[in-house]
């Protein structure tokens, strides 16, 4: 241990730095013994690959899930992207550019995985732009101060990693492989967020207040990122059961949320940040932290499109895409001309 006033670089700060990641990323191929029957492969916890036979509903569910995940990465560039020009130091500016760039990369890895299922990225983007496919509601909250970049890295990337580590052993091979790549990169995101808050909490009074305010605003939305309750009574009629059976979901929303809370509370204490939940306390009996009730009405409202930034995020994305149309067309036109020129050269030779 390093004492209380530095971050111990060897201590895991997020789920990608724990054994869970290594366990998820390791995978033993037994296909030789099992053959290529979908149900048998799933039952034996084996990977399904793009050209394998698979039920239509499995394919559709995956396309929807991977696309939504990809959209979240791309839309997720915006809340922090708009701080690149305002980052308060050059070191922070460089880190932020690299981080937002990573999110673009994650989006591309995921669209690439979705495309192995027979959809085109353009189709998926159209569905995003038309509001037919969703992205994570967390990005419909505004980033009001610099400390929000810290809170997003610490809490939002932290929660995302918690969600994503189990997906490294998702039954669909290309998705699992994309997630392994993503998780490896994500842990830097969470660390830089923690470090932003750490620095603020050791700074001026105004900086401390800024950090506390950001944590106040992002804590509950981060908990909601795990999705609605899906254990006990709440599980009935949900997607969780089928997705679990297919190996495209490994833990219930409630399990992951609990793990996240258990991981974050000690980190908040270290930071000196008070999490905005009066019911938060260690439950000796359960061996977990108890926490308060999430305001699901608010969650559903944001999901339906009534969040502070829903319209803005889609509008931004659509504008960038539309403004780029002439560029993409030009590149296609040039490629087509080049092909013709090469063919002419060949036939002349």
């Amino acid at each position: 241990m390093y004492g209380n006033d530095v971050i111990d670089p060897n201590e895991p700060l997020n789920a990608a730095e724990t054994g869970a990641y290594d366990a998820a990323a390791a995978h033993e191929d037994q296909r030789e013994a099992i053959g290529s029957d979908f149900d048998a492969l799933i039952a034996a916890d084996q990977r399904i690959e793009p050209r394998d036979a698979m039920p239509d509903t499995y394919r559709e569910t995956l396309i929807r899930q991977i696309a939504q995940h990809a959209h979240s990465e791309i839309i997720g560039m915006q809340p922090e992207g708009n701080w690149i020009t305002r980052a308060p130091s050059l070191r922070r500016k460089a880190i932020l550019i690299a981080k937002v760039q990573d999110e673009a990369g994650h989006g591309l890895y995921l669209y690439s995985a979705a495309e192995t299922l027979g959809v085109d990225r353009q189709e998926l983007l159209d569905r995003l732009h038309d509001g037919k496919q969703k992205y994570s509601s967390i990005f419909n909250y505004p980033t009001l101060t610099w400390a929000d970049c810290g809170a997003i890295g610490w809490l939002v990337d932290g929660a995302a990693i918690m969600n994503q580590v189990p997906l490294c052993r998702c039954s669909y091979g290309p998705y699992a492989r994309a997630m392994i790549r993503v998780c490896k990169e994500e842990s830097f995101h969470q660390r830089q967020g923690f470090e932003i808050l750490w620095t603020l909490m050791r700074g001026t009074e105004a900086q401390q207040a800024m950090a506390q305010d950001a944590a106040d605003r992002w804590w509950w939305p981060a908990l909601a990122m795990f999705g609605p309750p899906d254990t006990g009574e709440a599980a009935k009629g949900g997607h969780t059961e089928q997705s679990m059976a297919w190996g495209i979901k490994r833990f219930s929303n409630d399990d992951l949320r609990q793990k996240f809370v258990d991981m974050m509370v000690p980190q908040a204490e270290k930071l000196g940040i008070v999490l905005p939940d009066p019911h938060l306390r260690w439950n000796e009996e359960r061996g977990h932290y108890d926490f308060g009730e999430i305001d699901w009405d608010e969650f559903w409202q944001v999901l339906r499109g009534d969040g502070p930034c829903n319209a803005e995020r889609i509008e931004h994305r659509r504008r960038a895409h539309d403004e780029g149309a002439w560029v993409r067309e030009a590149a296609n036109a040039y490629a087509a001309k080049q092909t013709i020129r090469e063919n002419e050269k060949e036939s002349a030779a």
Binding site: Q78, G81, H316, G324, V327, R328
Partner: peptide
């Protein structure tokens, strides 16, 4: 960042 013609 977030404004280019293509994500790449």
């Amino acid at each position: 960042m977030t404004n280019a013609p293509q994500i790449e």
